[in-house]
Simulated scan of single mutants.
Amino acid sequence: MPWFVKIEEGIVDKPTFDKSVPAHKAYIQDLIAKGHQARSGYWIQKRGGMMLFEASSMEEAQAIVAQDPLVQNGCVKYELYEWRVVVQ
């Protein structure tokens, strides 16, 4: 299955963002349980973070990202890329 990367930048203040973090973590756990190999984290040096996951197509990846609580609650702007693994 192809890998996808959502690169995101926070666009709300930290207290507002933090309200969506528990739901985002639960969402990632659900993606893992469904076999998407999802990982999510944030940048130490700047606002924002990244989510890495597997999906069958760009269309499925877009649908997955659209369900992320950080996206649904307007906490981030993002770009979505298909990532080709060269070395495993």
Rank of each mutant, 00 (worst) to 15 (best):
F17H: 14
A63M: 09
Q88A: 07
V86T: 11
S20N: 05
M1P: 01
V87Q: 13
W43R: 11
P22V: 01
Q45M: 13
H24I: 02
Q45Y: 12
Q67H: 11
E8S: 11
D68S: 07
V85A: 13
E9F: 02
M1A: 12
W43G: 00
K77M: 11
H36L: 01
M1E: 12
E60T: 04
W3Y: 15
A63I: 06
H24M: 04
H36E: 00
W83D: 01
V86W: 02
A26R: 07
I11G: 05
K25M: 14
Q67L: 12
Q88T: 14
A33M: 05
Q37Y: 12
Q72V: 07
R39D: 07
M58N: 05
K77E: 10
Q45I: 12
F17G: 03
F4A: 07
I7M: 09
E79S: 13
R39Q: 13
V12N: 09
K19W: 04
Q62D: 08
Y81L: 14
F53M: 03
V87P: 07
D30F: 02
Q62W: 07
Y27S: 01
D18K: 12
N73Q: 15
G74C: 01
N73H: 14
D68Y: 06
Q29V: 04
E82S: 11
Q67A: 15
E59H: 09
E9D: 11
A63E: 10
G49P: 03
A55N: 09
V85Q: 13
A23Y: 02
I44K: 08
K6I: 06
K6E: 09
I7K: 00
I32E: 09
K77Y: 06
Q88K: 15
D18C: 08
Q88E: 06
W83Q: 09
S20H: 05
V85L: 13
V87G: 12
Y42C: 12
V12M: 10
A33S: 15
A55Q: 06
I44Q: 04
L52Y: 13
E9W: 03
V76M: 03
V65F: 09
K19D: 06
E82P: 04
K14G: 00
Y42N: 13
Q62L: 08
Q72I: 02
H36V: 00
E59M: 11
P2Q: 02
V71Q: 01
Q67C: 06
Q29W: 03
Q67T: 13
P22D: 10
M50W: 01
K34R: 15
Q62A: 15
I44P: 04
Y81G: 07
K19N: 07
W43H: 11
Y42S: 14
V85F: 04
A26C: 11
T16Q: 05
A23L: 09
A55G: 05
V65T: 12
D13S: 13
T16R: 14
P22Q: 10
D18P: 01
E8K: 01
R84F: 10
W83H: 11
A55L: 12
S57A: 02
A63S: 15
G74H: 08
E54N: 08
K77I: 15
I7A: 07
Q45N: 13
R84G: 09
S20E: 10
F53P: 00
F53W: 00
W43T: 05
V86A: 10
M1V: 12
E79V: 03
P22T: 07
H24P: 02
I44N: 10
Y81N: 09
A33E: 03
M50K: 00
R47C: 05
